[in-house]
Design a binder for these strands. Structure first.
Lengths: 204, 204
DNA sequence: TCTGATCTGCACTGGTCAGTGCATTCTACT
DNA sequence: AGTAGAATGCACTGACCAGTGCAGATCAGA
């Protein structure tokens, strides 16, 4: 359609294929040839677009972070101050847990951990583009709930940090770093436990 | 001294060097030649002892898990039912946080995450030899405290899971997967926050 | 139809590395 | 002193892979 439409399509296809392959094989193990084959594209095309393997990896990770951000913010957005906290928190907790346990989210975290040593800037990319914003949004909602007298807390940021921890910690352990898929009932159980403890500590 | 003393010493030296190198370079990137050089040993000696690179890695990870287990259990052991829970929990929390933030512990977790896809049995090794036992010990202490009327909780295992999560979650975020070293004051802050929230939820 | 940019297929270089083979040396025990 | 198991040094194979070069195909817009 537009001047560079075909070019943009290739780029997207490459990024998607890249993440798939990196997620499956790991950054080092994955070969650019495999990415090219998966994307249905010549290896040269990849180098034309991204320069080298590392830049391709960075961009693929960034794209995934943007994806994750959108889904997480949509979940947090359900936490409106006029809703009953217990009910709203349970829904938000479950949604966030689902985001966190998404296959691609696990892959992203494993890739980050694997390459944190050699490419520490990756962590900043993901934090700047996703993690921090989700945490801020959650803290903002908590602050509003506190103002409305529906939560008792001194520091909304800490509350957000801990709500997240109560979800992610158990999920990480139980799903074995994402190598085991949790049944929906267990997801709900973890979210329920988190909300229960959170409200015991901070409920009005 | 004994018949195989020299042999055992070599083995230990290799395991220590292996973990150091794997921790620094990652499993794929690390070369057996580098491990041999670091251990001050011929490459052949490594293959004599461990067969191949993967087995060496497994054994090095297992040894680290044993180390970590000992230090974590020592921390949990401070939680005696006759102590004031607030005080004891704070001390235990801080100790556990220190264990968790140990340089080698971070390296171990990063290696696990990196290779979880290709060697899922690693996760079982570490869980069987360390994680599960620490959690069980903690749950056991919580159960005793509840019996003594010093905690109000329905499920000690869930309480232990969540106490751990309140520590590890914030530590993971703040230290950026272990790439940033937390100042002792921040460690204490995280532990303090965790204990405060935990006692708000479960304190008698 | 022409032109320039992009894409493709293929072959190639240079480098790394796991694992092996062999001849030699060391060490501990008898 | 003698012997067997262990350790060493070194050279080598086979495989994998990032990145490049080139010659030709494709497709856009003028």
């Amino acid at each position: 359609m537009t001047v560079t439409r075909g070019r943009i399509d290739k780029r997207q296809a490459i990024l998607a294929a890249a993440f798939t392959v990196f997620a499956r094989d790991g950054y080092r193990q994955a070969s650019v040839d495999t990415v090219a084959a998966t994307a249905g594209v010549a290896k040269h095309t990849i180098y034309n677009h991204f320069g080298d393997k590392q830049s391709l990896f960075r961009e693929a990770v960034g794209a995934l972070a943007d994806d994750a951000l959108a889904r997480n913010l949509a979940a947090v957005d359900l936490l409106r101050p006029d809703r009953e906290p217990a009910e709203a928190l349970t829904e938000v907790g479950l949604r966030l847990a689902e985001c966190y346990c998404d296959e691609k989210s696990w892959a992203l975290r494993r890739l980050l951990a694997a390459e944190a040593g050699s490419m520490p800037e990756l962590l900043d990319i993901v934090r700047d583009r996703a993690t921090d914003k989700v945490n801020d949004a959650l803290a903002d909602r908590f602050a509003r709930l506190a103002l409305a007298g529906r939560l008792k807390l001194t520091d909304p940021a800490v509350a957000a940090e801990q709500f997240g921890a109560l979800l992610t910690g158990p999920l990480e352990t139980r799903s074995r770093l994402g190598t085991r898929t949790l049944p929906p009932t267990e997801l709900a159980e973890v979210a329920g436990n988190a909300v229960q403890t959170f409200l015991r500590a901070f409920g009005a």
